[in-house]
């Protein structure tokens, strides 16, 4: 039985008896090969995602021609509907449509939105910035909140641990839309400190959406981080450092933090994906323009080109973020760096 199936172990087996030169060349070859694999793999993922979405959208009930005619509320006669279908090539056989879609996709053409009557690339370009700002700020805020809570409760004794634990668990269990509504009720309607929607320019309109997205995520990250932090603080290394007189604060910052961060970094790739899903809810609650709301809206009105565009875009982002989080993990974990 062959047990060594994981391709990541290849770099181990190559080096052994060779000279330095051949070793370096081999390593370069491996890196190139792995890079090639990655690019091929990424292209494959994008193709599969686009194909999956394309055919799934055909299974969905409802006629995409409605999106072309101004949404499901239109009163277009059948003649107008048929004319619209012909005008947009929706009367062609499915495989022909798929072929022409793929052909365009390869050249980077995502087509035109049925409903917005703009190129999909332009629609996404306009919305992507909004969502990225929201997601990145939320991720950063979640990290800060989770780390702060983890640091505090890991050092604050039993009660602090319990409170920290409860806070994390409860905030991870709060639905976004409920949290968002509560924040609006308190900070916009009652206190009138912050705007309820993101219409106004500037940072003010971002605070509540970012918090809404960050708090549940912080709870989730915090749970993961605190576990490994506690382990790290009780590790032989920490105990000996303490014995050498290192302060608790410096210990937690220097040593435990890095350990705590490790699973968190690994999770960030996942978190980014879940933030995009969360963005759908948050952008709806706060009436914020963005990819999430665009996705929901386009699925609901069957604006197929936009749905496919969002899917391809999110997949691309996911691939990039995974790559970055791999790199970050390698950087934070010396064991992986050596490999």
């Amino acid at each position: 039985m062959s047990l060594d199936t994981d391709n990541r172990t290849t770099s181990h087996s190559i080096a052994a008896p060779a000279t330095r030169d051949t070793e370096a060349r081999a390593r370069l070859k491996t890196v190139l090969r792995l890079t090639g694999f990655r690019i091929l793999g990424a292209a494959g993922v994008l193709w599969a995602v686009a194909t999956l979405a394309f055919f799934a959208m055909r299974l969905v009930p409802g006629d995409p021609v409605d999106a072309l005619l101004g949404g499901p509320g239109n009163n277009a006669t059948e003649e107008v509907r048929q004319a619209t279908r012909e005008l947009n090539g929706l009367d062609r056989p499915l495989l022909v449509q798929y072929g022409s879609y793929l052909g365009k996709l390869v050249t980077g053409d995502l087509g035109d939105s049925y409903q917005l009557r703009e190129p999909v690339a332009q629609v996404l370009g306009e919305q992507l910035g909004n969502t990225l700002v929201l997601a990145v700020l939320a991720l950063a805020t979640a990290w800060v909140l989770a780390l702060a809570l983890a640091l505090w409760s890991a050092r604050g004794g039993k009660v602090a641990t319990l409170v920290g634990n409860l806070l994390e668990v409860v905030s991870a269990a709060v639905p976004h839309f409920w949290l968002g509504s509560l924040l609006i009720l308190v900070f916009s309607v009652s206190l009138q400190w912050l705007p309820a929607t993101s219409g106004a320019p500037g940072i003010e309109g971002l605070i509540l959406p970012v918090l809404t997205l960050a708090i549940p995520l912080a709870g989730f990250l915090g749970q993961v981080m605190r576990e490994s932090m506690l382990t790290a603080m009780n590790s032989p290394f920490a105990i000996s450092s303490r014995a050498r007189g290192e302060s608790e604060a410096s210990l937690s910052l220097r040593h435990a933090l890095r350990h705590a961060a490790l699973p968190g970094i690994g999770l960030s790739g996942w978190a980014m994906g879940s933030l995009i899903s969360g963005a759908v809810v948050v952008e709806t609650v706060f009436a914020r323009p963005g990819i999430g709301r665009t996705l929901l809206q386009s699925v609901l009105v069957r604006d197929v080109p936009v749905v496919l565009g969002v899917v391809v875009l999110v997949a691309a982002i996911y691939i990039i973020v995974t790559l970055l989080s791999d790199l970050a993990e390698r950087w934070a974990d010396p064991r992986l760096r050596a490999a």
Binding site: L52, S277, L295, L296, V299, V311, Y318
Partner: peptide, 12 residues
């Protein structure tokens, strides 16, 4: 599947 937005999967 991972690259496919989870919410879209659910929506579909």
């Amino acid at each position: 599947l991972f690259a496919f937005p989870g919410l879209l999967l659910a929506l579909l």
